[in-house]
């Protein structure tokens, strides 16, 4: 009766983590299978983008600032953590605004913020760039590796390889985007979408509403996370974002090139563009052999299908991106013995 299983994809890595941490899969009815999606910005940052940041960290009098999530992500040869051990000035920050403070405290140095994240995070960096201009900072730069979630979600929804009956949609991305971008996925690709929060109760209620939709053959976007998400989302955040960034085509690790799924700084903010400021030569990207993160990110295969999983590829020495981020599918499986 395997065909009768209801397959739901939790798009967001924070959901993957919460599900594993609470042990939700063990309590779900056996008819429901959860598949982890590509919603971890660290996991999908391309190797070339990481290599560029690492090359910049080699330059004298440069301080790299980053969210802690990026420290162990492997580039082709090395990671931030390795570079830091070898003497590069790489600092973990909680907020992009902390990077501005570091810029002000180190006027003789150039401070680069490693920008990763989806629609939740990119507006905070846009606001930081506006603030940097206001303060007249000339030594602050952003590497824009931001991703836009919906083009990737559409690519997944439309993929013939992927058999998913519905999407558990990310609550905090939706706080910013609202529900409109989901409309096409629900109506055109006929995939029910339920936006939910990150407590166990939110996730289980989200799953219940998806199952209700599937059983009654409906395909709509529903909000289970009403206490935080509105249909319109945070219009102000999107306005700030649009004033600083334009969309660009972007390479997702595991998924490849996706049209209009990345962000670049608008011309009027180009003085803050780290890619323009630092011309670096990138090593030839060699993708790790045997790694199936691409298929894991698409939900086609699971971590246990990978020969490297838990043997050569562990959270401390990750081979592929899904093991790197603590919210990556493989890391969640490794840590919580899914």
């Amino acid at each position: 009766m395997k065909e009768d299983k209801i397959k739901l994809m939790e798009v967001c890595g924070t959901h993957t983590m919460a599900i594993a941490r609470a042990g939700i899969k063990k309590l779900l009815p056996s008819e429901i299978e959860l598949i982890s999606g590509p919603g971890c910005p660290v996991c999908v940052t391309s190797q070339a983008d990481i290599d560029r940041a690492i090359e910049i960290s080699r330059i004298d009098n440069v301080i790299i600032t980053t969210f802690g999530d990026m420290m162990r992500v492997p580039g082709t040869k090395t990671s931030f953590e390795d570079m830091k051990r070898d003497g590069a000035d790489i600092r973990v920050v909680y907020s992009p605004l902390d990077a501005l403070t570091i810029s002000e405290d180190n006027p003789q140095k150039r401070v680069v913020f490693m920008g990763v994240g989806f629609e939740t995070t990119s507006p905070t960096v846009a606001a930081t760039i506006i603030e940097a201009r206001k303060r007249g900072l000339r030594n602050f730069f952003v590497l824009s590796n931001f991703k836009v979630l919906f083009p990737a979600l559409e690519a997944l929804a439309g993929s013939s390889k992927l058999k998913v009956d519905g999407f558990i949609c990310p609550g905090h991305v939706s706080v910013v985007t609202g529900t409109i971008p989901y409309a096409k996925i629900a109506s055109h690709y006929k995939k029910p979408c339920v936006i939910t929060g990150f407590d166990e109760i939110d996730i289980v209620k989200g799953i219940k509403r998806l199952v209700e939709q599937i059983k009654s053959h409906r395909c709509t976007t529903e909000i289970e996370y009403r206490r935080a998400v509105t249909e319109d989302g945070n219009i102000e955040a999107r306005r700030v974002l649009d004033s600083v960034f334009d969309v660009k085509d972007s390479h997702w690790r595991g998924l490849g090139m996706i049209k209009e799924s990345g962000l670049k700084l608008k011309n009027k903010y180009r003085q803050f563009d780290a890619e323009k400021e630092f011309k670096v030569k990138l090593p030839k990207a060699i993708l790790p052999k045997g790694c199936i993160c691409g298929e894991v990110l698409q939900g086609i295969k699971g971590p246990r299908d990978c020969k490297l999983f838990g043997k050569v590829c562990t959270p401390r020495k990750p081979v592929g991106p899904c093991m790197v981020s603590s919210e990556g599918t493989c890391a969640a499986y490794y840590r919580y013995g899914e």
Binding site: G13, K26, G68, D69, M71, T314
Partner: peptide
């Protein structure tokens, strides 16, 4: 035994925890 009553493995610390946003 988690808050909701599921049982999952609790491994040894693998890598130092770092402040994260994801």
């Amino acid at each position: 035994k988690t808050q909701i009553g599921a049982s999952r493995i609790l491994p040894m610390l693998e890598a130092d925890q770092l402040p994260r946003i994801c």
